[in-house]
């Protein structure tokens, strides 16, 4: 057991845990957090396995460096989209999880998805008109 292997194993555990949280949680911000931690787990596996029983390897390190920067920009973009979603819909979760009972019905699921897309499109288009509830309260300072 080397340190590199140990950290790679920790990376594996992080990926699995983060995946579980990602499936389980419906709050979008928590999903973004879980997604970030999953990314960190992947980075750990990459660097740890490359260096396990070998020397320091600059190539995966450079790749991970690129990955960290891309991850932060993806997170930032996700947050911006989340806020936009929140300000037009007033919700922090996607609609598909608010159906009463989960159904295996293929058609129904795709219908919901379509509805989602439609409502999001409507919301985005209605942009310049009446802003939705949360952003309307901006004036009450």
């Amino acid at each position: 057991m080397t340190s590199d292997l140990w950290f790679a194993l920790m990376g594996v555990a992080l990926i699995a845990l983060a995946a579980f949280t990602f499936f389980r949680q419906v709050h979008l911000l928590r999903r973004i957090l879980a997604f970030n931690i999953m990314g960190s787990g992947v980075f750990l596996v990459m660097v740890g396995m490359a260096q396990h029983q070998r020397e320091t390897d600059p190539v995966p390190q450079a790749l991970v460096l690129t990955g960290i920067v891309v991850a932060v920009s993806a997170t930032a973009l996700a947050l911006i989209i989340f806020r936009r979603f929140y300000s037009v819909s007033g919700q922090v979760e996607l609609d598909e999880y608010q159906i009463e009972e989960p159904t295996q019905n293929e058609d129904h699921a795709s219908d919901t998805m379509k509805d989602n897309i439609n409502s999001l499109q409507d919301a985005l288009q209605s942009d310049d008109e009446a802003p939705a509830k949360p952003s309307a309260s901006k004036g009450d300072q």
Partner: peptide, 14 residues
Amino acid sequence: LDAPDLALAEAAIG
């Protein structure tokens, strides 16, 4: 893990 570049980037960005 002998990766000071990543440590710098992680502390600042991550």
